[in-house]
Amino acid sequence: MFHAVLTSTREIADQVAADVAAQLPEAGEPRRLAPTGVEIPCAGPIFVAVEGADLNFVPSQNREKRMLIADMDSTMIPVECIDELADFAGVKERVADITERAMRGELDFEAALRERVGLVKGLHRDALEQCYAERIALNPGARILVRTMAERGAQTALVSGGFTYFTERVAAAAGFAINRANTLIFENDRLTGEVGTPILGRQAKLDSLEELADAGGFGAADVIAVGDGANDLAMVAAAGLGVAYRAKPALRDGADAVLDYSDLTALLMLQGIAQSDWVRD
């Protein structure tokens, strides 16, 4: 059996849920998870067109996961940190083009990262502080997602191809227990244009998933992973529930669930966790 999970950033009307249920094989009674989410038990996934909402099918067994592993840039936060840093250095257009191509899987991630960091060489540490203060914020639902899963006993890890300078702050703001990323190198409080090694990319994200799951005494089937770009593909494909969040085609095709119209609380609803059980500030 499966659950069809209908989510959006706007309220889903009962009639919309009923219309979807009428098209599903052996559909049960819709259950409202939140104003923005409904789940419907059914026999299996089929294509149903729904305007302005995401419809995903998840197996009914083992829905709630024991670990959340998430990308940061354009997933937990709405921007790419390196692109915003590049704006302070006056090279945003050039860097953003490299970022976009790397996230689509058109460029080698490690080489693209080195090139972009080289382009912001000389930036003072104060620019990074200003960048975080003015440009970085959590995406809607991020803190509720992380804190709810942590409160329910799940491990939470922010694993990014970005930089520890930002992941440490974003992890604290969202409530992640663990954060891993690349290290920017400073000399006299200015970026040297180099990044610490080894570089954390696609394989390192998968390795983190496997290592942390093993340390927790469970397997990848008990993990929910979320990202947006090609370097998240191995991690998302390996997880028991891999989610593509407003993602590039390279990731969408390998994910179990795709979210285009929902905020990050949809990851809770995919697991059957209703709004009444969400942890809020």
Results as ranks from 00 to 15, higher is better:
residue 129 E to Q: 12
residue 45 P to A: 11
residue 127 A to F: 05
residue 88 F to D: 08
residue 73 D to G: 01
residue 99 T to H: 06
residue 79 V to K: 07
residue 67 M to I: 05
residue 63 R to L: 12
residue 110 E to K: 15
residue 85 L to I: 06
residue 78 P to N: 01
residue 114 R to N: 10
residue 86 A to E: 11
residue 46 I to Q: 14
residue 108 D to T: 07
residue 87 D to N: 10
residue 85 L to H: 08
residue 112 A to R: 09
residue 127 A to D: 13
residue 74 S to P: 02
residue 43 A to R: 15
residue 75 T to Y: 02
residue 83 D to E: 14
residue 51 E to V: 05
residue 47 F to K: 13
residue 65 K to P: 02
residue 114 R to E: 15
residue 98 I to W: 03
residue 124 H to M: 03
residue 110 E to P: 04
residue 90 G to F: 14
residue 53 A to T: 01
residue 87 D to R: 15
residue 92 K to L: 09
residue 72 M to H: 03
residue 104 R to Q: 15
residue 72 M to Y: 03
residue 54 D to N: 00
residue 79 V to G: 04
residue 108 D to I: 09
residue 82 I to C: 04
residue 99 T to D: 05
residue 112 A to T: 09
residue 84 E to H: 08
residue 104 R to M: 13
residue 125 R to G: 04
residue 74 S to C: 04
residue 101 R to W: 09
residue 55 L to P: 03
residue 128 L to I: 02
residue 62 N to V: 07
residue 48 V to M: 12
residue 115 E to Y: 05
residue 91 V to T: 02
residue 104 R to H: 14
residue 95 V to I: 14
residue 77 I to V: 08
residue 107 L to R: 14
residue 112 A to F: 11
residue 61 Q to R: 13
residue 81 C to S: 14
residue 63 R to V: 06
residue 47 F to W: 11
residue 94 R to E: 13
residue 110 E to Y: 02
residue 110 E to Q: 15
residue 72 M to W: 00
residue 84 E to K: 09
residue 76 M to C: 03
residue 73 D to K: 00
residue 115 E to A: 15
residue 95 V to F: 10
residue 85 L to R: 05
residue 46 I to S: 12
